[in-house]
Nucleic acid binder design. Structure first.
Length: 591
RNA sequence: CGGGGUGUAGCUUAGCCUGGUAGAGCGCCUGGUUUGGGACCAGGAGGUCGUAGGUUCGAAUCCUAUCGCCCCGACCA
């Protein structure tokens, strides 16, 4: 039981100028956090309480799933990262750490980095500690601060430079075991978010730099999210847009036969899909081949799409490159022989075909059949281009970005797309890390194998903000019971009246005995101020004790999420409060 | 990294274009009146106008540089 006058909840009437979205404004206004710098926040007492509750629920669910808690260093000797499989990509987001007190400037390369995650740390640990199948499977987790040099921190805790994350790592003898670990983590995640009162959807996701064979993200639908989720309402299909496919190419599609002979024609000044659509050429975008040039790990490759489609860059990850970028005109000209706008992949039109590593075509271009593409000669295009006869294609793949309304790949119903916040991510890693760190075990046949890994993250601090984003109204936050900083607020309107204070303490104790976290607002403030603050900080259950009510022998009970005020006789107040608390606890429990 | 914006009291901001004593609201302090949905009156404290240069008799205001922050994009586990 805490007394507001002795506690510290600095609420604000006005929003700070730098907070754009509702959850960010409420975080600050309700006194949950204060900013130190871009993407850096102090958790104020109330914010810390919510964080602790989220952490505790997370801890319980991890342990329930058999994971074991440990704590790894935040400061990592850089060698561990250099030895790992993703140093070149991962270093982009890492903060380097050197001895600030040293007399000389830091050397070219950092001695330490601040941990953005811990695969490179836990794998060597397991390598030295686990050598037998008898010690497997194992799953370790920690709840710790992570450091990432986000290119653009934004929206408060949503994308911060320093944030709290629960990360877990599973180690199994084989793929089947890893699959079970993955499944049990997925279940634990569903339970965690449900207990936290947050509605999430699990979607298929891209594995990105992390690598691995399968991955799901836990998403909170919200307009302010950074990701797009693609889903079919009836089929249950759902995927991150980076990963999503659609059934736009029928499975039984038969490639069209050539129509007419390949013909080069003059297109002076036509360097965009749109301009080729205009008269006099009038070629619809879905009859054009779009040719993009990329550089992946130093190698140049081409991607061919329909003119009306867009490249989903994340899908290029399937080509095996770790870092890629669009090629510059200077790189393109000597290889293709033309500038962007006149590029194509018709056989034998390249200036230097040997300099091109591969030509990858999106499946959807098969819908074009015969179309138009650049001639690799500035100011010229080809018409009557047939995919099988004319194009130089290394292989087909899925590279296009899915659009809303396209058929669901499974059921054919129109797909929907919504913005969402990623709050959790599970990966099947396979042996990518264990191979690099030589994490092997010996089986009962005396055979050595690489340990099969999985990794699992929950953004705890991001989940906190996502809860606010999902549960708020014009007046403030509506905390779910399980993670509310306090569950019961005793709103004492006349703190100077001894009898009122007495009742506040009595009822507060009754609520506490029933299992609630109790805050008593005993400040010498006017009632209006107290009610506004109560709504703002969003305590689920409010008990109001006022001088007038006391004279009539009543107090009031009000849920933050409801409008009605329940008047309760003092004589039965304690039991009615205990009842309400029991009800709320039951509602927030899951099986 | 590219584009745009912004920096004035703890918070929200006016003033800047057109140079001449830095203003308001909230919050804070004192006193009084109030007391069921962000009260009122009176008095008060609090600002190197982000920083550094420059122009000028004189700079919050004009110029240059620099730093921070915000937005859009790119990027992103």
């Amino acid at each position: 039981m805490k007394y507001w006058s002795k506690y510290f909840i600095p609420t604000l009437k006005e929003s700070p100028a730098d907070a754009e979205i509702a959850s960010h404004r409420l975080l600050v206004r309700a006194g949950l956090v204060r900013k130190l710098g871009g993407g850096l926040y102090t958790y104020m007492p109330l914010g810390l309480k919510v964080m602790s509750k989220l952490e505790q629920i997370c801890r319980e669910e991890m342990e329930r799933a058999g994971a074991i808690e440990l704590q790894m260093p935040h400061l990592h000797p850089v060698e561990f990262w250099e030895k790992g499989p993703r140093w070149s990509a991962a270093r982009q987001i890492m903060y380097r750490a050197d001895h600030a007190g040293a007399g000389k400037r830091p050397p070219q390369e950092p001695e330490f980095v601040l941990g953005p995650t811990h695969e490179e740390i836990i794998t060597p640990l397991i390598q030295s500690e686990i050598t037998s199948y008898r010690d497997l499977p194992k799953n370790f987790f920690q709840i710790a601060t992570k450091f990432r040099n986000e290119i653009r921190p934004r929206f408060g805790l949503m994308r911060a430079r320093e944030f709290v994350m629960k990360d877990a790592y599973s180690f199994d003898v084989d793929d089947a075991g890893a699959g079970r670990s993955y499944q049990s983590m997925k279940t634990a995640y569903e339970r965690f978010f449900a207990r936290a009162g947050l509605k999430t959807i699990a979607v298929e996701a891209d594995t990105g730099v992390m690598g691995g064979s399968a991955s799901h993200e836990f998403m909170v639908p919200a307009e302010v999210g950074d990701d797009d989720v693609v889903y079919g309402e009836k089929s249950g299909y759902s995927a991150n847009r980076e990963k999503a496919t659609s059934g736009i190419v029928p499975k039984d599609l038969v490639d069209q036969a050539p129509e007419g002979t390949l013909e080069k024609f003059s297109t002076p000044g036509v360097v965009t899909i749109a301009s080729l659509e205009n008269a006099p050429h009038s070629v619809p975008a879905d009859k054009q081949f779009k040719t993009l040039v990329y550089v992946g790990d130093g190698k140049v490759f081409l991607v061919i799409l329909r003119g009306c489609d867009e490249l989903e860059e994340a899908k290029l990850g399937s080509l095996g490159f770790t870092l890629f970028r669009p090629a510059t005109p200077e790189e393109i000209l000597p290889l293709l022989g033309a500038n962007p706008g006149s590029l194509g992949a018709v056989k034998n039109t390249f200036k230097d075909r040997s300099g091109i590593d591969g030509i990858y075509a999106d499946h959807a271009i098969r819908l074009i059949g015969n179309g138009v593409t650049g001639a690799n000669s500035d100011g010229f295009h080809f018409k009557h281009v047939n995919i099988t006869r004319d194009l130089d294609i290394t292989r087909f793949g899925d590279f296009r970005r899915v659009k809303a309304g396209e058929p669901d790949p499974q059921s054919g119903e129109p797909l929907k797309i919504e913005r969402a916040i990623e709050v959790g991510h599970v990966f099947k890693l396979g042996t990518k890390y264990s191979e690099k760190f030589n994490a092997i075990y010996t089986d009962d046949q005396k055979q050595s194998h690489f340990i099969v890994m999985g990794c699992y993250g929950i953004g705890i601090s991001r989940t906190l903000q996502a809860c606010i984003e999902q549960k708020h109204d014009a007046d403030g936050i509506l905390w779910p019971w399980a993670i509310a900083p306090f569950q019961v607020l005793v709103c004492l309107l006349d703190p100077t009246v001894p009898e009122a204070l007495q009742w506040a303490e009595t009822l507060g104790k009754a609520a506490e005995a029933a299992g609630a976290d109790v805050l008593i607002d005993d400040r010498a403030e006017r009632p209006g101020v107290k009610f506004k603050d109560a709504d703002l900080i969003g305590i689920p259950l409010r008990i109001t004790i006022g001088g007038k009510g006391l004279k009539e022998g009543i107090i009031e009970l009000k849920w933050r999420s409801e409008k009605e005020v329940h008047k309760i006789a003092l004589t039965e107040a304690s039991s009615r409060i205990a009842e309400a608390i029991t009800k709320a606890q039951a509602a927030s429990r899951i099986e």
